[in-house]
């Protein structure tokens, strides 16, 4: 059991590390590894090194962190709600954040005050607060299709309002970029935001994992074991909000990562959230790093929306899951 976990963790780590190396060196302009190395430790002010240091490195690191956050928040949500499809984008959180960004970007004065990332962060926090309050309370009474329908309805609603605002301020294609998701704008300040906000929450989430374990056994069992499920749910919501908000603020709407990764890990390791949560973090990182590499390389020098790649893996996976759950 533990051997399996360690080897899986190693595998994910290797995949993530390899992904990071490829992400930093390959691209519209291929940079030799020697230069990459030098730009980290013997920095000179030449174009290639600037590219690595200020362009690709923060972007790859952001991808790694966001993938991790999405993975771990998916694992947490699924554990707490006991609902296999609970995931930020399925429940309308990321779409709510898109609405907030659209609304804020339409008001230039506020936008200038907050800056892009911070504006998105505040908006995402607000919307995820609303959505989580609504659906986490209901999620445990809902079967799969009801939660999914509620999520679909909420995301349509948020996107519709966002679309109205974007059309009125003549920014609809920009909004589409945001909805498509992507890491174009990732810079060092986004890495810091992710690292500080998300890092703290991830650490706290990991300390919560044994209590999530108990809640995932079911309401009655948890109470019987002396755990208060409502309390764990509230803690989880409080941690999920900054995790989702910081990811969405940097990368927009990236779907399915929080759905696929925890599932595969649960499938191979069983239902212990003390293992599932950290491994979902690493697995999500690896997945998103490679998805971002694909997004940059496939149609270079243009970018393909990263959400497309996560959807290409995610939709078939989701369909398979649904067939199994309802079998």
């Amino acid at each position: 059991m533990n051997k399996k976990a360690i080897s899986l963790a190693l595998l994910c780590c290797i995949a993530a590390a390899a992904g990071l190396i490829v992400a930093v060196s390959a691209g519209a302009k291929n940079i030799p590894l020697q230069t990459v190395w030098n730009s980290l430790f013997h920095y000179e002010d030449i174009l290639d090194m600037q590219l690595v240091r200020n362009g690709r490195l923060p972007r790859a690191l952001s991808a790694a962190l966001i993938g991790g956050f999405l993975g771990i928040s998916g694992a947490m949500m699924q554990g707490v709600t006991r609902n296999p499809i609970a995931e930020p984008s399925m429940m309308g959180i990321t779409q709510g954040a898109a609405l907030a960004v659209a609304a804020l970007s339409a008001i230039p004065r506020l936008y200038g005050l907050f800056g892009n990332t911070l504006a998105a962060f505040i908006g995402a926090a607000l919307s995820s607060f609303l959505v989580l309050l609504f659906s986490m309370q209901n999620a445990r009474n809902m079967n799969l299709s009801r939660l999914l329908l509620a999520g679909t309805a909420l995301s349509t609603f948020f996107l519709s309002l966002a679309m109205i605002i974007a059309m009125l301020s003549n920014k609809s294609q920009e909004l589409a970029f945001w909805v498509g998701g992507g890491l174009r704008t990732a810079a060092w300040h986004s890495v810091w935001l992710l690292l500080i906000v998300g890092g703290v929450c991830t650490a706290l989430a990991l300390t919560l994992s044994h209590r999530i374990n108990i809640v995932s056994l079911g309401e009655d069992v948890a109470i019987g074991l002396g755990e208060n499920p409502a309390k764990v749910r509230v803690f989880s919501i409080l941690l999920l909000i900054p995790l989702c908000a910081s990811s969405v603020a940097v990368a927009g709407n990236i779907a399915f990562v929080g759905l696929i990764v925890p599932h595969i890990i649960r499938k191979t390791l069983g239902g212990d959230y003390r293992l599932i949560m950290p491994l979902s973090f690493i697995g999500g990182s690896a997945l998103l790093i490679w998805a971002d590499v694909a997004a940059r390389l496939i149609n270079q020098p243009y970018e393909t929306p990263i959400g497309l790649f996560t959807a290409i893996i995610g939709v078939p996976f989701f369909l398979w899951l649904v067939r199994k759950e309802n079998g």
């Binding site: 799969l144 299709s145 999914l148 329908l149 679909t152 779907a255 959807a311 995610g314 939709v315 989701f318 369909l319 649904v322 067939r323 759950e325 309802n326």
Partner: peptide
């Protein structure tokens, strides 16, 4: 319905 939602996405 569930498959429909997935296909929609």
């Amino acid at each position: 319905i569930l498959v429909g939602i997935g296909v929609n996405a």
